[in-house]
Computed example of a mutant assay.
Amino acid sequence: MDKYRSLRKLFEAHSNPERAIAMSKYMKDQFHFYGIAAADRKNLYKVFLKSEKATKTVDWAFLEQCYGDEHREFQYLAYDYLLAMKKFVHFEHIPQIKLFIMTRSWWDTVDFLSQVVGNIAMMDSRVDELMLTWSLEENIWIKRVAILYQLRFKSKTNPTQLEQIILNCLGTNEFFINKAIGWMLREYSKVHPEWVRQFLADHQEKLAKLSIREASKYL
């Protein structure tokens, strides 16, 4: 039995129908769930990820199977897999990651994948130029990743890059874009509050009220 089918049987054996209904409702009934709590889910495949990490090779065919499954737990598994294998995920793999971003898209998996892209950016400066391009794309989830990929960079955040990306994304009523802008600015305000305060002052008329409200939380 291949790894995907083995994990599917494992998920099925630990499913919780009642919790699955609640989890699906939380996600606007867009996805099916097995109903496995996050901690329990990660524990189920802990040994599997350890064995995969030992191979030092990303199994992209397996990840495609995870994204092809209708149960959301498999997309969460794909993220945890990519995080475990981050040393072996490189710039050349971003086209495949982009496909995952645009597959079964919603904030939960997209925000996970923005961290995967961010991990690559920490090792390869070519990602920065690519994110500028992504910030100009029509797909809101691709734009959201461009905004958020530096979310965990703290003092290593490139403010010039951040400013240009946000400016490329202004002028929309899209909630997930405006929320992401505010979230990113809020996180950066923890290390450079004066920069964020000045950015808000300079672009107040163009920024959505949601973005300003989120960005100003710690100011």
Rank of each mutant, 00 (worst) to 15 (best):
W183A: 05
T109F: 02
G35C: 08
E163Q: 15
Q164Y: 06
K9Y: 01
G118M: 00
T55G: 13
F153Y: 14
M131K: 01
A121L: 03
R19M: 10
L130F: 03
D128S: 11
A201G: 13
I177T: 04
L185G: 10
P159V: 09
R8H: 12
S24D: 04
Y188D: 00
V58L: 11
A121N: 03
I97G: 06
E129H: 04
K25G: 01
E92H: 12
F100C: 05
Y4P: 01
K56W: 11
E129C: 08
D111K: 09
S211G: 05
L207C: 14
L162W: 00
S15N: 06
H71I: 06
A54R: 15
A180S: 15
K179D: 08
I142Q: 04
V58M: 10
T55P: 14
D29G: 05
S211T: 02
E205P: 08
Q164W: 02
S189D: 05
I165T: 09
Q96W: 06
A37T: 05
R152A: 14
F48M: 14
M122I: 04
L49V: 08
E174P: 10
L207Q: 10
K9A: 11
L185R: 10
L99P: 00
A201S: 15
K9V: 07
T57S: 12
E18L: 07
V145G: 00
F112L: 09
F153H: 11
M23G: 03
R41W: 05
E64I: 07
D2H: 03
S51R: 13
F31E: 09
F33Q: 05
L210R: 14
I177G: 03
Q65G: 10
P193I: 02
L63N: 07
